[in-house]
């Protein structure tokens, strides 16, 4: 009852980064409680994945032969069965898009409390999970009064583990009830192609909801022209149809690493930051000194973009 079970994630033949972060979290939690870390690898090329996941701190890797790609009905059933077998005190899952698609179902089926999107976890006696609220403006701690808990972790928040280990690899024979599999993945499609590749740009001028209206776009376009920059944006600009999808920076858009990322009227939500935090120099123009983007910025102007941008165009001409 002090072991940890972490369920790894893969897509189209590759383990996703969060899998290696799950090892880091799981190893720490297991050590805190004097238990062992068990990993689950469900579907895909399980043997190759198990090889890659044979990392420091992992005791047992359970491989489950279950189709090539993620299916939430199968993941839910298999995780439930592994949980019954291992009887861990903590279940750790990724708060990825697929995590969103099965973690709540697993927790509900096991009748275990779930805390999502953890950025920190302490588990000595009581479990305390740190998470953010109000668009990352505040942090909260949530105490969980239960012996067994499920936590989903925010991707890219923990370091990946890469030191080799000597885990035992076990095949787990899950019994999947096919009649309860009521969803079928029929394919994948890559979107966001098109004329420009923002991930190639050296200088990105990126706009967010602070721009307010489509009618204000020409102001930014003028800046883009004056600086020979490339225009990108946060998600709401694309959702509104003001810019095409290939301009979107973030978790569900593109990952960019320009020399300069100039964020204008962008708050810095976690899904946006996932796409731009690797930029060399980050500059933010935002009226809100508490906007999360300020934590990331190297340079900032706390002011109204409609006052600053015209002056910036002037200064550059």
């Amino acid at each position: 009852m002090s072991d940890v079970l972490a369920v790894t994630e893969h897509r189209q033949g590759e383990l996703r980064d969060v899998s290696f972060e799950l090892v880091t979290v799981g190893r720490q939690l297991a050590a805190d409680q004097g238990g062992e870390l068990h990993l689950a690898v469900i579907g895909g090329d399980v043997d190759a994945f198990a090889d890659e996941l044979n990392l420091d701190g992992v005791s047992v890797i359970h491989t489950v032969d279950a189709g090539a790609e993620f299916n939430h009905d199968i993941y839910t059933q298999v995780t439930e069965q592994l949980f019954a077998e291992i009887e861990p005190s903590t279940l750790v899952l990724p708060n990825s898009v697929n995590g969103l698609d099965y973690a709540p179902a697993v927790a509900s089926r096991l009748d275990v409390p779930l805390v999502t999107d953890a950025v920190d976890i302490a588990r000595d006696g009581e479990t305390e999970v740190t998470r953010e609220m109000y668009g990352s403006k505040v942090e909260t701690t949530v105490a969980v009064d239960a012996d067994t808990v499920a936590v989903s972790i925010r991707p890219a928040e923990w370091e990946a583990t890469d030191a080799e280990g000597d885990a035992e690899v076990r095949e787990f024979d899950a019994e999947v009830d096919e009649s309860a599999v009521e969803s079928t993945v029929t394919g994948f499609e890559e979107v966001a192609g098109g004329d420009v590749d923002i991930s190639e740009a050296e200088f990105l001028v990126s706009i967010g909801r602070g721009i307010e209206e489509e009618d204000n776009l020409p102001l930014i376009e003028e800046l883009v022209e004056a600086t020979d920059a490339t225009l990108s944006s946060s998600r709401p600009i694309v959702d509104n149809g003001w810019l095409p999808k290939n301009r979107q920076v973030g978790q569900s858009g593109k990952v960019v690493t320009p020399d300069v990322y100039l964020a204008i009227g962008i708050s810095g939500a976690v899904q946006h930051v996932a796409g731009m935090k690797g930029s060399d120099t980050i500059v933010a123009i935002n009226t809100d000194p508490n906007a999360p983007i300020m934590d990331l910025a190297d340079y900032a102007i706390v002011d109204d973009l409609f006052d600053v941008v015209p002056q910036l165009i002037d200064a550059l001409e």
């Binding site: 990825s96 898009v97 079928t184 029929t186 394919g187 994948f188 890559e190 979107v191 978790q251 569900s252």
Partner: peptide, 12 residues
């Protein structure tokens, strides 16, 4: 379903 990195999953 909108996955990460501009990939969409088609599901029935």
């Amino acid at each position: 379903r909108e996955l990460e990195g501009g990939i969409e999953e088609l599901t029935e």
